[in-house]
Each structure stands twice: as structure tokens, then as C-alpha cells.
Design a binder for these strands. Structure first.
Lengths: 352, 352
DNA sequence: CGACGCTGTTCAAGTATTTGAGCACATCCG
DNA sequence: CGGATGTGCTCAAATACTTGAACAGCGTCG
């Protein structure tokens, strides 16, 4: 019934019996110009009325909303951790991330209907005047023009897990795929495996990381031992994981080790192996990638490359903040590569 | 180098050679007052300059920012799906969720340092003038006063998974714990189990759902068969999952079935069972709750209650939108209970 | 010829707040 | 006693629009 919407500064000023601008200055901390008693009165009234500053107005006036748009697929614990990293860093600078979904999250998180959805999401962020943008480049290529426009308007952009095919127009951050794939290769070769298969993800245009991961792995195996890796991948919609896993395990000769480009694919290998009565790691070694939340508790626990999603998130956010603080134009776009660590668990052993 | 920040309406008007207010009206869709040729010119210039409306201004003027604050723990796939549901519904109404983290997401997602963190997060949302608030009530009790203030200001609040201990002051949405727990109880009893243990989560003040879930389960078992359930729980920080699981499986007599209050606890049971050489489901039946992303691919696949997180998210968002659309004061707070479905997989069987 | 419709214009006020400039008054110094 | 200094506060413009009201120029119709 009180029907009162948010109290205005005007109300506070009136209640404390000072002018609007006096109230504004006092509440902004410019107190030395005013008497202690006046300050206290204003503060007390603001408190009593429950006044809070209106950041929208600040946004209009300063051109800074203290928000950063984030466009990533909140798909598994990897992305959740990336988000966590972003949140922590932004929060400590009193920024807030505004996250939008890409893809038809209704039914299939990893699949995007068309470019327009992503573009409209970017639009919605820009309408809110975000100060910066962190994104996973589902269709980065399609957005190039958009990026260029943003950068011209001094809205810093950081892209996660994307390699710019031509000119690099924005900052970029990714897992060091080459080193990581090599670590996996070294591990499997050291165990003595020679029949090695790689289970890649969907390798659509925007899944550049999957391509790089698989290719780096193939290259490492070839370079280290001269062996050829037989590679499989998911279909375009990522719906046939179990079928591919079955296919992988039905090869003649059967591979003794499978490197899955993420832990998700490894799950399908586990499932197919159980179906076929193959024991891990006795009959089959499995290596994943990401160290997702469930990987340590699989039976057997999954050997996997532990990425540093939180660190990736933190660095991404920090890059945005740095760009916003410092001079924007004088530094060229950079790429940060974050390391990953091989966690050896029970899913790998020498071939029998 | 162009150094241009976002173009203003003024720029568009100038470029199209019309007045500011004409440009405003045309771009807002009030076109019938203007000639087709003029409209086209304005639209074209707006497009060319990349003009986009400034929702901050709209927010100041109308008091509606078209944003909804969301405060939930993006902890596992359950919450990710809740978020997805929220996003879908809000996006279709051209709203945007602004998500803040609760808890020290740096190290321990499910643990909050103190009330103040949550309150400061709410503050940051309110400073941005969110139109509504969806939250998971880590410290809902501590926030009661806050809620009351929000509701007085006509900021609708929806609480997920929280039971108001006294007066219900906000809308609330939760999984139907009673029915769900009863379904689990019926399943285990139908299989013939009599030594049944419940593995609860941390049951801190704000984990009301865990308390309700465990208590409902105990009650159902008692009511259906007159049996007593031996219940265990995690410590206050949720750090001793494996120890508790070991303890559970070391009881004399050993339970033949364990109901885990979430799939996370079930993972610990799997791990402890593997350690002790117990086979699931031959020696031990395990039931989880939530049907998280990994549950179907465990070996054996986990029997679990499938909640409807997306539906919960959707309903929560819809409740906010309804409150915003309709008359706010005339309807009393309601509680929505969303059903869950028992998914029987390989982790349960009759006791041997 | 005057009224009317069409297509625009200008004016002014409103949104919530910030901020540079400046004013009134008191005190203090020379 | 005049001028400098400082305190406490106010005024007005600015941010980027929106919106209602009034009005102006032009062609047309009765």
C-alpha cells in the first residue's frame, strides 16, 4: 500500500533539510566541505529512507555503466568456472557481468540456430551500454564487422578459445593447445601405446579449439613416435556420442588408448566400453580433457588435462578492465595462452 | 583513431536532417505521423551510424530497466539449467537477467563467508535498478527485512527452494520434496530393501531443501513400512563426502540401499563402494537426486529423481514477469511446487 | 476563401543525478 | 575598515533522450 518506489535523492535532501546538490556531494563522499553535523544528518536520512544511488544515471553521465557483457555457453563445469573467474575479478572492481546465452539453450546448448540469435544478444548488451564484452566466439567470424565497430567505439572485446584466422582484431585467451596435446601424447607414448585414436568433438567452424586440439595431438604423436592417429568426431549436432564411441571401440585392430577432446566424449567411451565388456584401463586407456566436475569420481577416475577455467575467466576480465583503465588505442591485440596440467588417474595404464 | 563513442540520437537527426524529436518518434515506431521517405531516411542513417537506443535513459524515464537480478549458485548442471530456463523466458520478453554469485565462488561454491556478501550483492543489483529479483536463499532469513523493503517498492521477488519459516513474504518455487521423497521410498521398498540409509547434504540453516528432502524420505519410509532410516550428513563445509560415505558403508549391518539427497553425494558412495570392493547394485543400491549431467553415464548409471530445473527457472522468470505486468498488490505470495520423476537406471536392484 | 489534413517543426518539461561556478556570511589579517 | 580566506550551501547546466502541446507551411477540397 505504501506504493513508494525507490526514494530519490530529492527526498533525502528534503528530509535532511539541505539542497539537492549538498546531499549529492555528501553522499558521494565529498564531506570535507560540509559540517560534520550536516553530513551526519544527510547520511542518517539516506539510511532511514533506504536511498541508493542510481547507477543508470551514473551510466548516462559518465558513459561507464560498470558492466561487462559476457556471452558464453554455460554448458558444463568448465564454463561455470570461467564465469566464476570473471565474476570474482569484475566484482572486485565493482563491475558486474551481464551474461547472455548463446545457442538454443532450450534444447541443445551447443547448437546455434543462426547468426542472428547471437547478434541480437550482442545488441541487447549494447543497448544496455556495457563497457566491455567477453565472448566465446560461436560465430566470431560472422561478428567480425561487429567487433570492429565495437573496438572503434572503444568497447574492449576479449574472445575466449578462438583463433583469429586473419587479422587479430581483439584480445584473445585460450588454453595452450599445443603443449597440452603434447603432454597427452607423451603420456600415452610413455605408457607404450601404439594404437591410438582421437575422439574429437563436433568440429564446426566455431569449434576451432576442437580442431586445434585434435590436430595438435595428431602432430605430437607423429612427431614423437611417427605414428598415425585415427581420428573420429561427433556429427554436426553432437548427438551421436555413443555411436561414435562404439565405432571407435569396434575398429580392427582395437585401439589401446583413446584421447577424448573433452571429458564429455570420454564419458561415451566409458559407456561404450561397459557395453562391450572392455575394462578400463586394462583393455583400454582413456584420456579426457578439461577435468570437469565429475571426472575425478568416475570409475575408474579419468586421466585428463586440467585446464584452468577460473584463471581463464580472471584473465579475460582483467584484460577488459586493463583496457578500460589504460589507454586503449596504443596497444595491439594480444593472445594469452593459459597452461593445462596432466592429471594422471586410474583410466590410463600400459597396454596389456 | 576515430575515437567516436556511441552515436547519439542527435547525430542521427542531424545526418537525416530532421529534428531531434522527429528522429526519436520515428525510431520508436511512431511512423504514421511522418512521410515514408523521411522515415526511411532516418532509419537508414541510424543504421549507417550504428545508432542504438540507450536503455539507460529508458530506465531512468520509465523506472523499468528490463532487467531481473538473479542470485543463485551456478554450482552444477541443475543450476545451469535453472539459469537456462530463466534466460529463455526473460529473453522472450526482452528482459535480461543479471546474475551475481553468492558464496565464495573462488574456493568453495557452496559456502558463504557471511551475510554481508549476499547483501552487498543485492545492493549492487538494486543500484542498477533491476525490476525484479530471483534468488536462492542462502541467507534468506537474514534478508527478510531486505525483501520486505523490496516488496514495498514493488520489486517482485521469487525465492527458489526455500520454505518461509514464518510469514511468506515473497513468491516461492521449489521441487515437490514430499512426493519426490515418497517416490524414492516406494521404489526402494518395492525392491525389498529394509536396511536403508539416507546421505544428506550439509544441512545448514539455508539448506532447507536438504532438511525437507531427508525428513520427507524418513517420514515416507516410516509411514509406508514402519522402518527407521539411518541418516548421515556432510559437515558444515561439505568437505568430508568420502569419509561420510565410508562411514555409511561401514555400518553394521551394512545398508543395502542408500538414498543420496543429491547426485553429488551419490558420487561419494560410488567411490567408497569401489574402495571397499562393493558392487553396485549387487551389494548396494544407490539412489540420487537431481539427475545431473553425469548421472546417466556413471557405471552403473545412477537411479535418480529427475528434477525439472529448466521448468523451475522458466516458472520463476514467468512469475516475475507476471508480477511486473499485472497489478502487484492484490495477489498474495504463492508457492509453486514442481514435480520430479524417478528415473530407474542400473544402480538399484533388489537386495541380494 | 476558409477549413482541413499531412508532414513536419519548435518548445518545454520531465527522468535522477552530478558538477563547476558562484554567492552569502563569518572570521581573520594588516 | 577593507580585503583575503574559508565554510556551507545553492544555481544552473549537463547527460540522452521522451513526450505532450502547440504551431507552421503546403496542398486540397468543399
Amino acid at each position: 500500500m505504501s506504493g513508494s518506489s525507490a526514494p530519490r535523492l530529492k527526498d533525502v535532501a528534503k528530509a535532511a533539510n539541505v539542497s539537492l546538490s549538498a546531499a549529492s556531494r555528501i553522499l558521494r563522499g565529498e564531506r570535507d566541505r560540509f559540517g560534520a553535523e550536516t553530513c551526519e544528518r544527510v547520511l542518517k536520512e539516506a539510511q532511514r529512507l533506504g536511498w541508493r544511488r542510481n547507477l543508470l544515471v551514473n551510466g548516462i553521465q559518465t558513459g561507464r555503466t560498470k558492466t561487462v557483457g559476457v556471452m558464453i555457453p554455460p554448458y558444463d563445469s568448465f564454463w561455470v568456472d570461467v564465469l566464476a573467474g570473471i565474476h570474482v575479478v569484475l566484482a572486485s572492481a565493482d563491475y558486474l557481468p551481464i551474461t547472455v546465452w548463446v545457442g538454443d539453450c532450450q534444447e541443445m546448448p551447443h547448437f546455434e540456430k543462426d547468426d542472428k540469435q547471437g547478434l541480437s544478444q550482442i545488441s541487447r548488451l549494447l543497448d544496455r551500454r556495457v563497457d566491455g564484452l567477453i565472448l566465446w566466439p560461436s560465430f566470431a567470424v560472422a561478428y567480425y564487422d561487429h567487433f570492429r565497430e565495437l573496438i572503434e567505439r572503444r568497447v574492449p572485446v576479449v574472445v575466449i578459445d578462438h583463433e583469429f584466422s586473419e587479422e587479430q582484431i581483439a584480445d584473445s585467451i585460450e588454453t595452450d593447445e599445443q603443449r597440452s596435446a603434447r603432454a597427452v601424447a607423451e603420456h600415452l607414448l610413455a605408457l607404450g601405446h601404439e594404437q591410438i585414436t582421437c575422439f574429437s568433438s563436433r568440429e564446426t567452424a566455431w569449434q576451432a579449439w576442437a580442431v586445434r586440439r585434435r590436430a595438435s595431438f595428431e602432430a605430437a604423436i607423429a612427431e614423437l613416435k611417427g605414428l598415425e592417429v585415427n581420428s573420429f568426431r561427433l556429427n554436426q549436432w553432437g548427438t551421436n556420442g555413443l555411436e561414435v564411441a562404439r565405432e571407435i571401440l569396434s575398429q580392427e585392430p582395437r585401439p589401446t588408448a583413446v584421447f577424448s577432446v573433452t571429458d564429455h566424449e570420454a564419458l561415451f567411451i566409458y559407456e561404450a566400453a561397459a557395453e562391450l565388456g572392455l575394462r578400463i584401463p586394462d583393455d583400454l586407456s582413456v584420456v579426457g580433457f578439461a577435468d570437469l566436475d565429475f571426472s575425478a569420481t568416475l570409475q575408474p577416475p579419468l586421466t585428463t588435462m586440467r585446464q584452468q577455467p577460473k584463471e581463464i575467466g580472471r584473465r579475460a576480465a582483467q584484460m577488459i578492465l586493463d583496457r578500460l583503465d589504460g589507454d586503449f588505442s596504443d596497444s595491439t591485440p594480444t593472445t594469452v595462452r593459459v597452461g593445462a596440467e596432466l592429471i594422471v588417474r586410474g583410466s590410463t595404464s600400459p597396454p596389456s
